[in-house]
Design a protein around this nucleic acid. Structure first.
Lengths: 121, 121
DNA sequence: GATACCGGTTACTTCAACGAAACCGGGACG
DNA sequence: CGTCCCGGTTTCGTTGAAGTAACCGGTATC
């Protein structure tokens, strides 16, 4: 039997999953939570350039998809902790692979872009 | 020494790379070219739901980044062939990993979404 | 009492991406 | 000659994701 889901199929639910994964800030949040639970402010600091609004939205979306668990800490001072679920942790591998690919191929890509810009001028 | 590029840094060029990788249709094109060169129409057929305009844009962007090579076939009938470059092929692994993750965790995620929708109602 | 930190929320705006539809030249086919 | 396929381009409109900025209650600190 073939696989149950196929991203090439127009109406396959895996497309919605891929869409969530590909959202602008998802990768950063998943990576930032890779070493363990973090507070909202820690995430905001670590992920440079993210605004609180977008961070909230991203965390909510990941929580809705079961990738992140949000826990209120009733201690003093009260706080909120975000952690990856097992499901979220299982996405960490592929995400790390993609971000490491990005980090390690920057020079080639910048060079290609420069070449392309030249060629069309 | 630390790594040269860090996706967590606001101004790091790796962010632009990640942005390109995360673009809606990039993953589909890279995967569709994974088995070898393809014609424009073949890609359009294989990637269900993509419009010619968006396919053109995506291919141009990937070409600019040096991930895809565009070759005019002067034969008869004339045609155009798209193929991954070595760089593009090296991205295939991570991309396949992500898409396979998506395909294989659809049920869990749909269940989580349903649970979340219930919980907030 | 004033100030600051935490973990957000709200309202408004902007902008790039995406999509729909029509159209195009060149060649092949009948 | 009329029609079809290939590989796009062009125009227009939409939308939703993202950004800006201000604000909020509660707690603790000075």
């Amino acid at each position: 039997m073939g696989k149950a889901y196929d991203v090439m199929a127009a109406t396959c639910p895996s497309r919605t999953v891929l869409h969530r994964i590909g959202a602008r800030w998802t990768v950063f949040v998943v990576l930032a939570l890779g070493d363990g639970p973090r507070r909202f402010t820690q995430l905001k600091t670590r992920i440079e350039g993210i605004t609180p609004k977008v961070l909230t939205e991203t965390l909510r979306a990941l929580e809705a998809d079961g990738l992140v668990r949000r826990t209120s800490l009733p201690g003093n001072p009260p706080g909120v902790e975000y952690a990856l679920t097992d499901l979220g942790r299982s996405l960490g591998g592929p995400m790390r692979a993609v971000s490491e690919w990005a980090e390690s191929h920057v020079p080639e890509i910048l060079a290609a872009r420069a070449r392309y810009a030249d060629a069309e001028a």
